[in-house]
Design a protein around this nucleic acid. Structure first.
Lengths: 262, 262
DNA sequence: CCAAAAGTGTTCCCACTACACCCATGT
DNA sequence: ACATGGGTGTAGTGGGAACACTTTTGG
């Protein structure tokens, strides 16, 4: 939503166009400087951070809604989006009044109030999607209601609104579970990357160390990556070679669930 | 719902107590005679079969709703229930009129009609849960609206209402993916089972053959099962030994994702 | 010259694979 | 006796694990 008027329209007429009681929350993962990060935002009037999210139109396919929500908040060239869980157990149980207050503080920026019987004040389940993006190719389309955006290291997530903490944790677990079934490496890394980069990425996601030599051996033995003649300059150190994924072997390995050396 | 009056109340006042636009569907897996089966039901007035399902109360945690729905339709001692996907892309896109007609045929048994603007006629997303049960210890609590229940072999599923076909397929894929992370074997088998039983179960779920000797060797090497002195009589053949799971080793192996021999 | 990071090869052993014959039971 | 299904062991090998020194680069 780009203008105050958009927001007012949404609050007044949203119930005609969106499904109540259901939202979509997106955990956007990126990888930079050997750190796994997620994109968070902070609404006007709140100190706590939130996940990007939105609502489903009344006749819109669910996955289409997730893509639309992501597309309106960020401009991401090549997007991988995956549903991972639906949250409705509310470890963070908010009552109607609390929900109303949170929304009122958000929407105050547009000078519009949310009543206690407004649909946004009601209980809302949330479908969680995770997105994998190339950190460097993301640009953000600022939303009228959002005061700031930030990439946060996943091991230093600040205090979050609603049950977004729980959603991120589940997304991380899913990432770990699916590392050998989904093209997670290829989506988080740029087209050309170094061995230390992919090595650190796997260590970060799985939370355990891998022997560098065995790791490279396995990648090459499975034909997952190809070494390029180019090198990258990284300052006062030896220049690492660049690699690229071999799409065919990579996707075959994902289907078979081939596990890398540990 | 046990009586005509229950059904009438539900149709008239359900919107006050349940969340609209959202249902829960349960794929109940059981294992018997070396066949993986799911429990299906057929509503009065329909030739097609359906998954057991229901709606979420307005302030009821989602997983609690799933347990309640299962508990009212079946009496299952020891239940393992796991959310696996939320369906809202509608490969089976039904419009309002078609949805209304399906519900009208179901609810006709109670002599109550569903209007075109009734909440049950509207677009509904579905949260899929799969349950693992010990086939022999399930007893069914007949529902007023259901004409018959049946366990169907998963490789001979009949034509189903709504998008239930897709839901079962996704449940089976999930079962396959999670066989080494969730206690699927232990929940589908009775407390004591034979090696040929568990062997065939793994072959069925993963859809590929395992060498009998290597399979047993691996189970014992990981300490997953203990051989008991008892045997089972199986008619005109040699009596197989009974085994039981070693809970401690079994759960440790699941956490590590240990893979059995292929 | 030094500090920091990247590149690289070998050995050992365990665990997976492949494989076939005998035994128990009921008819 | 026979048909059916269950029980059981070994040998070979390939892949995973462990492990340390050299090279590059910039300051």
């Amino acid at each position: 939503m780009n203008t105050s008027q958009d927001v007012v329209d949404f609050v007044r007429n949203g119930h005609l166009h969106y499904l109540p009681h259901l939202s979509i929350d997106c955990v956007i993962f990126g990888y930079h400087a050997n750190q796994l990060k997620t994109l968070l935002l902070r609404y006007h009037g709140h100190e706590q951070w939130s996940l990007p999210g939105g609502f489903v139109r009344r006749h819109e396919p669910l996955s289409e809604a997730a893509h639309r929500i992501l597309a309106t908040q960020t401009q991401i060239a090549d997007l991988f989006l995956q549903q991972f869980h639906t949250f409705g157990d509310g470890s963070t149980r908010l009552n109607r009044i609390e929900t109303q207050q949170i929304h009122n503080r958000i929407f105050a920026k547009a000078g519009v109030a949310i009543a206690e019987d407004h649909w946004l004040s009601e209980r809302t389940l949330s479908v969680g999607y995770y997105a994998l993006v190339d950190y460097l190719s993301v640009t953000i389309t600022p939303d009228f209601l959002v005061e700031e955006y930030a990439w946060c290291d996943v091991d230093a997530i600040p205090s979050l609104l609603f049950d977004h903490q729980e959603i991120i944790e589940k997304a991380l677990l899913t990432l770990r579970d699916q590392l050998y079934q989904q093209p997670i490496g290829a989506r988080l890394l740029p087209a050309k990357f170094t061995l230390p980069e992919i090595h650190a990425l796997y260590e970060t996601i799985l939370g355990k160390p891998f022997d560098r030599r065995n790791f490279r051996k396995k990648l090459l033995a499975l034909g997952l990556v190809r070494q390029l003649p180019e090198q990258r300059r990284i300052g006062a150190h030896r220049s690492p070679y660049l690699y690229e994924f071999d799409p065919e072997n990579y996707h075959r390995a994902l289907e078979e669930g081939s596990v890398l050396a540990g």
